[in-house]
Amino acid sequence: MENGISTITQIIPPNFYLILSSLLFCIGIIGVLIRRNIIVVFMSIELMLNASNLLMVAFSSYRSDGAAQVFVFFSMVVAAAEVAVGLAIIVMIYRNIHSIDIKELSKLKW
């Protein structure tokens, strides 16, 4: 409470954030598993990444280490790059088959 800035880390035990991130992460996984729309699947993956980011920031706060927060920058960078490429792939696929159903593309098998 010095500096007038209260910090949540002193009140909430770290496993709360662990559990929250795990929840979000697993919801992301569920999304990946149950959806057929590639874009939604992709969004679920973004959700997983964000869950990680949240946890990373939490750890950063608990450990008072700025490095972890910088790490989150990089994870955002990567996410952005992935999104760019991923969406390009989705667009390309849509051009070819006019669908972004994950099941449509299952010619390569066995």
């Binding site: 996984i29 994950i102 593309l105 299952s106 010619k107 098998k109």
Partner: peptide, 15 residues
């Protein structure tokens, strides 16, 4: 035959 070609299945298997 495990290799169904279905990405959803692959993801399931991974999980």
């Amino acid at each position: 035959l495990l290799q169904t070609g279905n990405t959803g299945f692959y993801l399931f298997a991974m999980v």
